[in-house]
């Protein structure tokens, strides 16, 4: 999903320490935060917005276009189902360590409700100059500035580095879509590519993948249908097999989910695949009009 500046954002779990810090950053950036949810602190005002006991009540105050979840792992399912039941069309789940079973339940319920889910385990979304949802450093002008590169990343930290390299080259981003580091996520690489292909402000795409799963291979099948050039970097070339590398999804066995498989698929489908992130800027510069 790409969040526009006029869209209303709800923060679930707003009274937590990290949520408080990042809600303030989001607001400074201009994100239109309309309310928060915190079951035990309903009725107070926090970060300058009213706090409700449930999404249903918050939606009566101001129906949100997006809800961002800063809630603990084992509470994510109930919080997300609350948001879906209240008719929120888009959820951004930042939480890491959500049980896969819960994630699958939420995604199935969202699909039934016609809603979109980004995450879990994502650093969030940034539309430079408009909106930031999550904990990406949108406020840092050396990392984010409006431009024409759409970025899809499983990793927040590597996505940040990629965006830094884009700005260093004199380019900017149309949207940053952090899809998350879990093996099961609501918006997979391919879906994010579809969104950027449709987005009129995007003229080139940067895909940041990593070892594990088959999202890059799956996305590669979509590349021939795209009108926009794709530059890719896949993390984990030097990682050993059968070890989980920080992200729950970053693990490969022999040929399954390996770097070689992903690189081959992306290259074969016409993407420019880089050996180091420092090549990102130069590669994009030659492609962005």
């Amino acid at each position: 999903m790409i969040v526009r500046g006029d869209e209303r954002v709800l923060v679930q779990g707003i009274t937590g320490r990290q949520a408080t810090y990042w809600t303030a950053r989001m607001q400074e950036y201009g994100t239109r935060v309309v309310a928060g949810v915190s079951p035990r602190k309903a009725g107070i005002t926090h970060c300058g917005v009213p706090v409700f006991g449930s999404v249903r009540e918050a939606a009566e105050h101001a129906p949100p276009d997006v809800s961002v979840l800063f809630v603990p792992p084992l509470s994510v399912k109930a919080a997300a189902l609350d948001a879906l039941a209240a008719g929120v069309p888009r959820l951004v789940i930042l939480t890491e360590h959500v049980p896969v079973r819960d994630t699958m339940h939420v995604i199935a319920a969202a699909r039934e409700a016609g809603a979109e889910v980004v995450g879990p385990n994502t650093a969030g979304l940034v539309t430079p100059g408009e909106s930031s949802v999550g904990f990406m450093p949108a406020f840092d002008p050396s990392i984010f500035r409006p431009g024409r590169v759409g970025v899809v990343s499983r990793s927040g930290s590597l996505g940040t580095l990629a965006c830094l390299n884009i700005v260093r080259t004199g380019l900017g981003q149309s949207a940053f879509i952090g899809i998350g580091g879990d093996p099961v996520i609501g918006t997979r690489t391919r879906r994010a590519l579809e969104l950027l292909e449709q987005d009129r402000r995007t003229s080139a795409v940067l895909l940041i993948g990593e070892i594990g799963g088959d999202m890059e291979e799956d996305a590669a099948q979509y590349l021939p249908e795209m009108s926009k050039p794709v530059v890719a970097f896949v993390a984990g070339r030097a990682s050993p097999p059968d070890r989980r590398m920080g992200h729950a999804g970053a693990i490969f066995q022999e040929d399954r989910g390996s770097y070689a498989s992903k690189r081959q698929a992306l290259q074969g489908a016409g993407a420019v695949v880089l050996d180091t992130p420092s090549g990102i800027g130069p590669a994009l510069k030659s492609l962005v009009r």
Partner: peptide, 28 residues
């Protein structure tokens, strides 16, 4: 390094530039 993606990438670039990483340590 901080973050799984950046830490893996740091190892990748060490190998790419001819070195050998001693470890993965992520503090993101």
């Amino acid at each position: 390094a901080n973050g799984a993606g950046l830490t893996m990438t740091t190892m990748d670039v060490i190998v790419h530039l001819g070195g050998r990483p001693a470890n993965f340590m992520e503090i993101g």
